[in-house]
Amino acid sequence: MFEARLNQGAVLKKLVDAVRDIVSEGNFDCNENGLALQAMDSAHVALVAMLLRPDAFEPYRCDRNMSLGISLKSLGTILRCASNDDIITLRAEDTADQLALTFESPQSDKVSEYVLNLMDIDSEHLGIPDTSYDTVIHMSSAEFQRICRDLQQLSDSVTIDASKEGIKFTATGQLGSGQVMLRQNMNVDREEDATVIEMQQPVQLTFAVKYLSMFAKTTPLCNRVTLCLSKDVPLLLEYKIDEIGYIRYYLAPKVDS
């Protein structure tokens, strides 16, 4: 039996909204570490890894490890039936081919029940090596989203260049080019607007900006984002969900041909 009651139901709604354009389906692993999803996009360019820890839920019950094959589109459709302040409970029997979802209003005066048919999904779990990154940037997630949105107008690629000058985002296309330079700044009115750069060594990588923009749809979940860059390895973009979990995105860089 798996049962998990999430007081902040909006977290699950935003989480599914954030990833459903990147991955259409995936196996949600339920075990003593919490509720986790690891899935690649169909082009094998981007990977989503998310975790909601057991303490995100009250209660969290998982009698044995389970893997729930879920269509993110279908789950998103059902979650749209929940209000933002609803408490969401997920429930599945050990051998079930369905996931039951209960949406409960804060005063328990409205209770809705939905059932999602599960899928058999053949997916491999990938090992992600621990990496010591050349440059790590902590910044406002809204600012990151803005930069992606602006530069996407110019090109389908964005080059991120970390040097002692700061972090430069550049896009060059047919109409011209654009660049945004971010410098370390901790002297800000709101802590979430600070830009903190931890640079071991300079690094320059180019990425498909459409993926960066899709990752940036996670902005409503977290006002901070961390970018981790190393030469010739995938970008790691991390959004922490309060103290209860995270969404991490990995993106393969473009390579000179």
Partner: peptide, 14 residues
């Protein structure tokens, strides 16, 4: 010119 890399060359099935 650049081509899009794939994650398969970085992450292996565990």
């Amino acid at each position: 010119a650049s081509t899009q890399g794939r994650l398969d060359s970085f992450f292996k099935p565990s």
